[in-house]
């Protein structure tokens, strides 16, 4: 009788890690946002090439704040990775601690960025370098803020016990987004802070 026939293989029900549609959707988001930053940096390079090296601020952007800040952001990524590892092993404490640490580090990054901004002797409207600098780093900061908001939501849901060892898609997705935001920073950082050093 037809009723008795089964597909013959257990299929997971609902979201499951990289198998979920959410994971693929996030990859699409990352592709499009990654492109956005690529176009932003293209604009910088395009104008920089046309204007020549005298266009860069003198002295070149300093690494004093930006260098350590980069490390802070990278450390926050490690925390998120560690948090996700926690929930995969059913250690809720580790999940919570990792997420909280990432949020704190992310916020510290923001604070230092604001400090960095306030120390600049050019402004958004003083010239095209300033426009590019503030708009591009501003775009990145906006992404950091969104990332922190996501981590906070995930933290809250984790605290109420919404996730399990096998069902914790928001942790995976929020974490991936956070890593993406960090990688973008590496590009922004290299463009503004490192590339002027290369061309002397």
């Amino acid at each position: 009788m037809a009723e008795a026939i089964r597909y013959g293989q257990d299929l997971p029900v609902g979201a499951r890690g990289r198998n979920s549609t959410g994971w693929w959707g996030l990859l699409c988001l990352i592709a499009t946002e990654g492109s956005l930053f690529a176009y932003l940096l293209f604009s910088y390079v395009y104008i920089a090439i046309q204007r020549g090296s005298a266009w860069l601020p003198d002295p070149h952007p300093s690494l004093k704040l930006a260098g350590p800040n980069t490390l802070i952001l990278l450390a926050s990524s490690v925390c998120v990775w560690w948090a996700e590892r926690g929930i995969k092993r059913n250690h809720r404490g580790q999940l919570l601690a990792g997420l909280a640490a990432a949020v704190i580090l992310g916020t510290a990054f923001l604070g230092i960025q604001v400090l960095e901004w306030s120390g600049k002797d050019f402004s958004l409207s003083s010239g095209s370098y300033g426009s590019l600098y503030f708009v591009i780093t501003g775009f990145h900061m906006a992404h950091v803020i969104v990332g922190i908001a996501i981590l906070l939501c995930v933290l809250g849901w984790s605290a109420t016990g919404a996730f399990t060892r096998r069902r914790h898609e928001p942790v995976t997705l929020g974490g991936l987004y956070w890593h993406f935001v960090d990688v973008v920073w590496l590009f922004v950082f290299s463009t503004f802070y490192l590339s002027p050093r290369l061309i002397g």
Binding site: E3, I5, R6, Y7, D10, L11
Partner: peptide
């Protein structure tokens, strides 16, 4: 959350 082996029917 588990998995399931779905039925096949007409």
């Amino acid at each position: 959350e588990g998995a399931r082996d779905p039925r096949i029917v007409d």
